[in-house]
Design a protein around this nucleic acid. Structure first.
Length: 259
DNA sequence: TTGCATGTTCCGGA
DNA sequence: GTCCGGAACATGCA
């Protein structure tokens, strides 16, 4: 699930349910997913604190709690849920934060990602590593400058969190498909016009998706087609190709996205 | 049983 | 230093 848009959905979800509320207790259901503190130390750091305004940088969710921050990464299968009480917890719920009147559940089947506590901005950056500017607020000049300093393939560049934070496999495929750029094209081979087109589609994909908190599965989106074995291009009807690009399965149209 | 899955990190090699 | 591919991580599903 989680790329930038999904995490943005989680941010809003957290904002709606827990911002400003006092934490009554913290239940660590899977010790391993609390990555940089003991369960006990996380509990004592959070209990009694209030969550401030939820932030997001790339695929990271940042929940200020008192002086500290609770950092969440969702890996490939993470999600948040809210429940009025402790009934019917799921076996993949890894961390539960309890408030008066309900509880926030961090669920993660495959256990990539996890939860960290950061005492300050320095510790946060230690945890997240250096992140590029968030894709949702990246300006055109900055995007152009980042690509100018980059070699290698365009899909790898879009997915590199150090360069731009937030884009993953699905969104990079969606953007390149809309921009009609082959996923293996090298950055250096792209004309300024092509790069502007990629930027334009990046903004469009994020903009059109943001109200859903995820990339839509509509008929005109590549994302919807990639699950089908005999998927065809929503634009031209050609059979879509699947190849490994930058370590992931890229889905693209051999007719629309020529080298 | 095998392969694949929207994530990151680490390693060796060019 | 840069970039790439591959393997690893953990779990479930087709």
């Amino acid at each position: 699930m989680p790329e930038l848009l999904d995490v943005e959905g989680f941010r809003r979800f957290a904002e709606r349910h827990v911002a400003g509320r006092a934490i009554r207790s913290v239940h660590v259901l899977d010790r391993e997913l609390v990555r940089n503190r003991s369960a006990r130390s996380l509990q004592s750091a959070l209990a009694g604190q209030r969550f401030g305004t939820a932030r997001r940088h790339g695929k990271w969710l940042i929940l200020p709690a008192g002086e500290a921050e609770l950092l969440m990464h969702f890996g490939m299968t993470g999600a948040l849920a809210w429940a009025p009480n402790d009934a019917d917890r799921h076996r993949h719920d890894r961390l539960v934060v309890v408030f008066d009147g309900g509880e926030l559940r961090y669920n993660n089947m495959r256990r990539f990602g996890g939860v960290w506590l950061a005492r300050d901005a320095d510790e946060r950056e230690l945890v997240t590593g250096s992140l590029g500017p968030d894709a949702a607020t990246l300006g055109p000049e900055k995007f152009a400058a980042l690509l100018d300093a980059r070699r290698g393939g365009i899909k790898a560049a879009l997915m590199d969190q150090h360069l731009i934070a937030g884009l993953g496999n699905l969104m990079s495929d969606e953007i390149l498909w809309r921009a009609r750029v082959h996923p293996e094209a090298s950055v250096g081979s792209l004309t300024p016009h092509r790069r502007q087109k990629i930027y334009h589609e990046l903004r469009a994909v994020i903009g059109e998706s943001s109200r859903y908190g995820r990339v839509p599965h509509g008929r005109r989106w590549l994302t919807r087609m990639r699950d089908d074995r005999d998927a065809s291009c929503p634009r031209c009807g050609s059979r879509l190709s699947r190849t490994r690009v930058a370590g992931r399965t890229a889905c693209w149209c051999p007719r629309c996205q020529r080298r």
